[in-house]
Design a protein around this nucleic acid. Structure first.
Length: 224
DNA sequence: ACATTAAATTCGA
DNA sequence: TCGAATTTAATGT
């Protein structure tokens, strides 16, 4: 069974839980590693666990009929995803790909539902998370500049700096420009240009193998 | 696609 | 264990 301190470290939601709920979470969490490029969850498969990224980076995406791929969002260390599919007990509507070597924590469906039924603290976290995602998707709908690479990159990044979804994350993120491109749905060179433009506006700073956000509000503004 | 530069790794003392 | 040399990864155009 997972060490209690490790669980607290990798799962912000576990920290407010009381003794019984915390033990239930402890019993339900397992860890699993995925190689870069591998598929974590297949679209259409029945999904039975809620997942959190301990280390690495995954993207949630969907193949449309004409073969084009739509990336919903990227999830990096500290982020949890899949609550929708677990709650509704329905098949996955999207697939999850590891963009680099990644370790996930998995909370099995039975434990998730138990916490959902018995823990107000757990529900508080869930509601906050769902609300934040709703806001993200409403922003997506409003956006009229989805074709502009700068806006796409800005949106992809802004979602990864969401302070509710990533309570631990600072302003710095380790991510290559290739990974930015995969998340934003643009080529690596285009991602490079977009990042440079954003850096020129003083919204962020690009570094080797990563970037630092200087003005999150303005970064958000690029998309919606 | 190619050239450049940063970082990680290996190897020899 | 230190640092130079080599290899790998990321960036810029």
């Amino acid at each position: 069974m997972i060490d209690p301190n490790r669980l607290r470290r990798i799962a912000a939601w576990s920290r407010p839980l009381d003794g019984a709920a915390f033990e239930r979470a402890r019993a339900g969490v397992t860890e699993r590693s995925f190689a870069r490029g591998s598929c974590v969850f297949v679209q259409g498969q029945r999904f039975d666990a809620w997942a959190g990224v301990i280390e690495g980076l995954v993207k949630l995406c969907r193949q449309s009929r004409d073969g084009k791929e739509i990336t919903y969002t990227g999830v990096h260390a500290g982020g949890w995803f899949g609550e929708g599919s677990v709650l509704k007990g329905e098949v996955r509507r999207y697939e999850v790909i590891a963009l680099r070597d990644t370790t996930l924590a998995l909370l099995d469906r039975a434990s998730f539902l138990w916490l959902f039924e018995h823990s107000a603290d757990f529900n508080r976290f869930l509601v906050g998370q769902l609300n934040e995602r709703l806001g993200q998707f409403m922003g997506l709908l409003e956006s009229d500049r989805l074709r502009d690479p700068e806006a796409r990159v800005a949106r992809a990044l802004a979602s990864m700096f969401n302070p509710v979804l990533y309570p631990e994350a600072g302003a710095h993120l380790v991510i290559s420009q290739e990974e930015v491109g995969l998340l934003a749905g643009v080529s690596r060179p285009v991602a490079n240009q977009a990042l440079k433009a954003l850096a020129g506006d003083g919204v962020l700073r690009v570094e080797y193998g990563g970037l630092t956000v200087l003005d999150l509000e303005r970064l958000r503004g690029y998309g919606g």
